[in-house]
């Protein structure tokens, strides 16, 4: 990425850079189960996350910045998630929406459910609930945007692992 991952940007440029990135997050629709319905409800008129700059219906993983995993992840589906996550270009963020993708949820004892999407891919924000209210997703997006706003790309590409944010904790 040129100089961005090698040089610590001066504050004004960093501010503008991050401001542009955080207010134009393209979401890759990864609706798996019931939480996908609440995700769609958040994108429609009443709650509307488009006004936060989060744009749904990215044309594919290669044009997306944000992956919102909403719904139960099963062992059969897990390789597909990993592959799609790997296809997304950096910098990419993951919101785990709903308790099934946080930790397995109500199916914690099932033989076919992966107990949480963080077993496969790194997660930035956890939004708990079954299903979480649309307002909780908006809260999660705002928290993610705050983090992106203060992010340093140099540290990110130096593989610094950040503590994930848990909404409502």
């Amino acid at each position: 990425m040129g100089l961005v991952d090698k040089v610590e940007l001066p504050q004004p440029i960093k501010f503008v850079f991050n401001w542009g990135r955080k207010y134009s997050l393209w979401v890759f629709n990864f609706g798996l189960a019931c939480c996908a319905i609440e995700f769609i409800a958040t994108s429609t008129a009443r709650h509307d996350f488009i006004r936060l700059g989060v744009i749904p219906f990215a044309h594919g993983p290669r044009q997306a910045d944000l992956l919102v995993v909403s719904g139960t992840l099963t062992d059969k589906m897990a390789p597909a998630v990993k592959r799609l996550y790997d296809e997304m270009p950096e910098p990419k963020y993951v919101i785990s929406f709903g308790s099934c993708s946080n930790c397995g949820g109500p199916y914690w004892d099932s033989y076919s459910v992966t107990k949480g999407v963080d077993q496969i891919i790194p997660v930035d924000v956890y939004v708990p609930g079954c299903p979480p209210r649309p307002e909780a997703l908006l809260h999660g997006i705002i928290k993610l945007q705050e983090r992106i706003g203060s992010e340093s790309l140099k540290e990110r590409y130096a593989r610094g692992e950040l503590e994930p944010i848990v909404v409502g904790a």
Binding site: D75, K76, G104, D109, S110, Y111, S112, K115
Partner: peptide
């Protein structure tokens, strides 16, 4: 049909134990 290809065992039989319940009590 429903299970992944690599799955071994017949889950709905009574002797098939749910590992998550064995590993950690509820």
């Amino acid at each position: 049909l429903l299970l992944p290809e690599e799955f071994e065992g017949h889950p709905l039989r009574k002797e098939f134990a749910l590992l998550a319940r064995e590993a950690k009590p509820w």
